[in-house]
Amino acid sequence: MNNQEINQLARAAKEGDSGAFGQLFDELSDSVYRFLTFRLRDDEQAKDLLSQIWLEAWQSLRRYNPDRSFRTWLFAIARYNLIDHYRRYRPTVSLDAVINRSGSTDIEAEVELADEMARVVDNIDQLPELYQTVLKLKFVEELEYPEIAEITGKTENHLRVIVKRGLDKLRANYEA
């Protein structure tokens, strides 16, 4: 589903169409869940927060501007809730528990890949919150800079510098 189709569903949901809202959930819940899980590292907490975010989105639809991207609006709500939640609860569980294995039969390659990914996630965790958010939105959710700017409230120039510096820091940690 492209952004235009998502925004059309959002307009319908804003008018009270809960079916359209359900379709939005189908389309975007995985993205939001990924965004939460990277930070929370706990499956149950991520699912609880996910439900809370979607309920809040439904209740705040009156304030949603249909000319804006619903996706970025939803991620802004998710980020706000995540920051608030993270202040109160610190994540403790390893991300290994929530990464679904692909089912590959090449165990050695699978283990090596999982190890590489765990390293990159651990290194991302060392970065400041803003860097983590921007890198995840850019490379995992593949949002464009204007969308990320809307979610984070930063300028596109600043975001480009953050991405470059974030990648430099990750690379430095890898090569250390």
Binding site: S29, D30, Y33, R34, T37, F38, K47, L95, V98, I99, N100, R101, S102, L113, E116, M117, A118, V120, V121, I124, L135, K136, F139, V140, E141, E142, L167, L170, R171, Y174, E175
Partner: peptide, 21 residues
Amino acid sequence: TNYTDKQIEQLIRQAGRRVQL
């Protein structure tokens, strides 16, 4: 190992995409 920006980006992408409901 020397990693390029593209390789780091790819690792982030792969790590992210594996996480789903």
